[in-house]
Design a protein around this nucleic acid. Sequence first.
RNA 1: GCGGCAUUAGUCCAGCCUGGCAGGACGUCAGCUUCCCAAGCUGAAGGUCGCGGGUUCGAAUCCCGCAUGCCGCACCA
Length: 487
Amino acid sequence: MGYDEIYKLALERGFFSPSCEIYSDFQAGFWEYGPIGVSLRNNYVNLWRRELVRRDGMTEIDGTQIMSKNVFVASGHLGSFADPIVVCTQCGTTVRADRMISERVGGSLPEGLPTEEYDALIAKHDLKCTNCKGDYGKVRKFNMMFRVGIGPKDDDAYLRPETCQSIFVDAPRLFKTMRLKLPIGFAQFGKSFRNEIAPRQSLIRLREFYQAEIEVFFNPKTANNLAKFQEIKHVKLPIQKADGNFAEITAEEAANRKIVPNQLVAYYLAILIEFYAKTGIDIKKVRFRELNAEDRAFYALAAFDFEVQTSLGWMELVACNYRSDYDMGRHAKISNHDLTILDGEEKVIPHIFEISMGIDRSIYCVLEHSYAKENEREVLRIKPYLAPIMAGIFPLVSKEGLPEKAQQIFDSLKKEFAVFYDESGSIGRRYRRQDEIGTPVGVTVDFDTMKDNTVTVRDRDSMSQKRIKVEEIRSYLSSLLQIYSES
RNA sequence: GCGGCAUUAGUCCAGCCUGGCAGGACGUCAGCUUCCCAAGCUGAAGGUCGCGGGUUCGAAUCCCGCAUGCCGCACCA
């Protein structure tokens, strides 16, 4: 299925929609989750908690979205998250000053030059706009962070451009109070904000978006001595190397042959791909793409993007970055706190491996990989534990006490399961409506129900039905929610 | 941010060229029908024609600006 079908489904069925859409001054890059979308996202995040956070014994926190300026001095975002841009005074074309200069003058420029030096270079080489030969204006820094003013004095602070900074600055207290030892993963789900120049395609590139980030703190000396590595050593990792070669190899081979930096990285890539297999994303259409030095973030020693093939091309869902001791080293320096951790006898600045997941994009991919049109039927073949609604409860016809009986069953289930009652239209129409939002089960009350207290349960994927007792509905639904019976 | 195209009911779209009552299909709702897969019949609701300005007796329609969306470029932690 393509983007257009998913977008239409989203608008019609309440997955997501543009923010502030009744006003004409609304801005690009902001989208709402509707009722069905919220339910899907909650289920997705809970699967993330179950299959990554709890599986690995991680510690989850929830930090603030607004953080002080010094956090981003330390993180490097104030300096490096800003691009030097220059605008043509004639035609308004905007280009990256550093790239434009190095392309036309030759050689590469050091990062983070003051803007005056770019101005001087443009003047020295008499560079004109490539589009219209017009003069360039002054070079300025465009920072991708949203600045906010705090209190009556409008003190500088910023909306976080990634959730992980809270983890770094909270880490010292967490190690003390939660009695943690290396290696340990910290997890956080929440909003991040980036002032993208060109937001695109609804959930794919947003200015306000959800991340689920995991930051694994470890001592680099023991990164190849990981007991739990045995659990996943046979998991296959599809890796697209920076040199272009592709290989599907086991986690064990990847670590031994140094295709990934160490066992610890191999382990987390493996549990990540096992997580995505459980989301229903087609695991034959995923890869880890190794980034070369130019494409990596400024802090990363190694980086693997987890990508999924979609109708829009390969889409990056997760950035896996080996951040080394950059973060804790920088925060130690700028905050003037000792951020070393005692690992046995040794004091270390922890190294960090990061699994930075884009939730909105992941939700989109789950939808695209699950949605199917078969003849006249449109069906979202989503895993039951991700389904926004678990079961529709229907009276076969709206008379002779059937609605009352169905309502009674609905009431008995509603606190435990996301169930939906509907008596409007033919029974077929009600089944098909639920198919479109991926509801795995239709429970129908008919005339036999009134005699023997049984109902039919209808399966979304096969459309087949069987009769079960009313008392068995609860266990029937529970059994469908089991993850570990899934392949 | 640049260029091209687009924006009309919940959704898809016609109407625009050639200015003159706001339309269709699907969906939704109500009633009838209905013993299991978008059936049928009857009826109804639903509109800031993206926003602002201009031209005109009169603008969904023509002109200008802006916003948003899509595609391409550029950008992309």
